[in-house]
């Protein structure tokens, strides 16, 4: 059991490292170093900054040194909480990000919880009542969910919201709370606004999970242990819930690992469409403005969130599946 957890931890750390390298590559990708871009931007706004300032910046980020030194420099900054400077905002990256990281996590968590809450019962229903009208209806909706990309769904819902209800469904807060500090009222306002974007982001994942759950459960329903339980006189309902659903939950739980990158990806683009105060619009803005430290940091944070989430879901899987706990399967 510990070996399994350790293996997963090593993989998570390794992935995390890859994420930082990729983020650093993204920072480095645009031609010229970031001080050049900074200079260009400053001269465009006609600010007067001395040549010495640029030189000190170059030294600070080791821009005159080899690439790996720059990476190490950046990483040591990251470990001490300094993610670099956003030149678009002329503030430290962390200040710019503010509570957007937390908002992204809240939104993604909401999307995952909704995904599970919807997919689990529907998946069970569809498997137990295979080929019933309800199964066909859910399968059809599932296909739509898979087929309609979340940002298009957001657009369409926005249009419907505007024409039918004359309201803007975007944002996570009502206007009066937008700039307010956190309060109980603001939390309630957030909870009121959260479900719609969470459903939009989670829809395709929900459709996928319904399929996974249905297929898993159909497999399990054919297993002899179901016949054993049936022959023991259990009622169909408690039997299905106690055994095959429980077994089918294992692969279902492991789908969190891939659901998370999916949902974080979706949250970026849906947030742009709906104007949600998450990392998404900030990432887009920073990329368009070539504000690379900000962009790289956001990519790294999103990557880190998935890696940590996936690791937690691995632990969850270990906890619920005795076969993994006892190292019976890899």
């Amino acid at each position: 059991m510990l070996a399994y957890a350790a293996r997963r931890l090593v993989l998570a750390i390794f992935t995390l490292w890859t994420v930082t390298v990729l983020s650093f590559i993204i920072i480095q990708l645009p031609p010229g170093d970031f001080v050049d871009a900074y200079m260009a931007q400053l001269s465009a706004t006609q600010s007067n900054v001395s040549e010495q300032h640029f030189e000190s910046l170059r030294r600070q980020y080791a821009l005159d040194r080899p690439m790996y030194v720059q990476y190490l420099k950046w990483m040591s900054g990251v470990f001490s909480g300094d993610f670099g400077t956003s030149m678009m905002w002329r503030k430290s990256v962390l200040d710019v990000i503010g509570d957007r990281l937390a908002m992204t996590m809240v939104l993604s968590l909401g999307a995952i919880i909704l995904t599970w809450a919807i997919a689990l019962p529907i998946g069970i229903y569809s498997a137990v009542r295979q080929y019933s009208i309800g199964d066909y209806v859910f399968t059809f909706i599932g296909f739509i969910g898979l087929g309609v990309p979340s940002f298009l769904l957001a657009l369409v819902l926005m249009y419907l919201g505007f024409t039918l209800f004359d309201s803007d469904i975007g944002g996570l807060f009502s206007p009066e709370y937008q700039l307010e500090p956190w309060s109980w009222g603001k939390v309630k306002d957030l909870l009121y606004h959260l479900p719609l974007p969470a459903i939009i982001i989670g829809l395709s994942g929900t459709a996928e999970l319904i399929r996974v759950m249905r297929a898993n459960l159909l497999d399990e329903l054919r297993k002899p242990y179901v016949i054993t339980a049936r022959a023991a006189g259990m009622s169909e309902r408690s039997l299905v819930l106690k055994y095959p659903v429980r077994v089918a939950l294992n692969p279902f739980a492991s789908t969190v690992g891939y659901l998370l990158p999916y949902i974080l990806s979706g949250s970026v683009i849906v947030s742009v469409v709906l104007g949600l105060p998450t990392l998404g619009p900030l990432l887009l803005g920073s990329l368009v403005a070539q504000d690379m430290f900000l962009a790289g940091t956001i990519v790294m944070m999103l990557g880190a969130l998935t890696v940590i989430g996936t690791f937690l879901s691995d632990l969850l899987l270990m906890w619920i599946d005795p076969r993994i706990r006892f190292e019976m399967v890899q």
Binding site: Y258, V268, L287, V299, G303
Partner: peptide
């Protein structure tokens, strides 16, 4: 590793370059 990194931010980062 590739699968555990959210795709859209990564694509965005690369495409922006």
């Amino acid at each position: 590793i590739l699968r555990s990194i959210p795709t859209i931010p990564l694509w965005m980062g690369m495409a922006a370059a």
